[in-house]
């Protein structure tokens, strides 16, 4: 899950980056509105967190510009402006959610998950359940409905599984998977992805991720139940 954090306050951005990484997001961070304008359209982000009071360009202008350009990435506004009229203004400008500061980190994470889930046509619930496999986003664990014993996942495994589960029935090219799993500064090693996928197969059964030679990976679900 690639996440773009646009926030000019360094301590907050540091904390949030740590928080998001912990929850399996690959975070890119911008402090300036002009950088953000370019970055949001050049990289395939899954979600954008936008502060409204930005140097360079005001957040609302950015938001309106992106929506006018057809960018449909879910955007959550994170701002100190807490009144309802400002909230309505933000949402009408094209944001998908609006969270006033100060917020509880748990709530922010829940809102992010709900936004991503909604984008992929799933009901917002604490778990993602596809084809006999259940993923708990908060616990970062997964289990097969056939045996119901949760298996803990590493951050990378969790991120890969979540991405594949959010796009079931899609074949995801390795490059695309890499794009969504690592931020722009991270060293991308395709072999590492293979290692993680092997781990996942060991934990949840061989059929959970199907390799389509030459094309990429596809979520296969619970092979035992199938």
């Amino acid at each position: 899950m690639r996440l773009l954090l646009i926030e000019d306050n360094v301590p907050l951005a540091d904390e949030l980056t740590a928080l998001f990484t912990q929850h399996g997001y690959a975070v890119d961070w911008c402090t300036d509105g002009r950088d953000a304008a370019v970055m949001a359209t050049s990289e395939p982000f899954d979600i954008i967190i936008l502060d409204l009071g930005l140097p360079g360009r005001p957040g609302l202008t950015l938001l309106e510009q992106w929506r006018a350009d057809g960018l449909d990435t879910p955007i959550l506004i994170l701002t100190a402006r807490s009144s309802w009229s400002e909230r309505i203004t933000g949402l009408r400008a094209g944001a998908d959610d609006y969270l006033p500061k100060p917020f509880h980190p748990d709530e922010l994470i829940l809102r992010l998950q709900a936004l991503v889930r909604r984008r992929h046509g799933q009901r917002p619930s604490p778990t993602i359940s596809v084809a006999g496999v259940v993923l708990d986003e908060n616990g970062q664990s997964a289990w097969r409905t056939s045996d119901d014993t949760p298996v803990n996942l590493t951050r990378a495994e969790f991120a890969i599984l979540r991405y594949l589960m959010l796009h079931p029935d899609h074949v995801i090219a390795k490059d695309r998977l890499l794009d969504h799993l690592y931020d722009s500064e991270h060293d991308r090693n395709p072999n590492v992805v293979e290692v993680h996928i092997n781990h996942l197969r060991q934990k949840l059964g061989r059929g959970v991720i199907i390799t389509q030679r030459g094309q990429g990976y596809r979520f296969g679900g619970d092979s035992a139940a199938a």
Binding site: N9, P11, L12, E15, L16, A18, L19, Q22, G53, A80, R81, S82, P100, K101, P102, F103, H104, P105, D106
Partner: peptide, 19 residues
């Protein structure tokens, strides 16, 4: 002041959530 205080408050809230 009010708006400026909210960001450090957010930082502290997030720090409080640390493992």
């Amino acid at each position: 002041l009010g708006h400026a205080l909210k960001t450090p408050l957010s930082v502290m809230e997030t720090q409080l959530a640390r493992r």
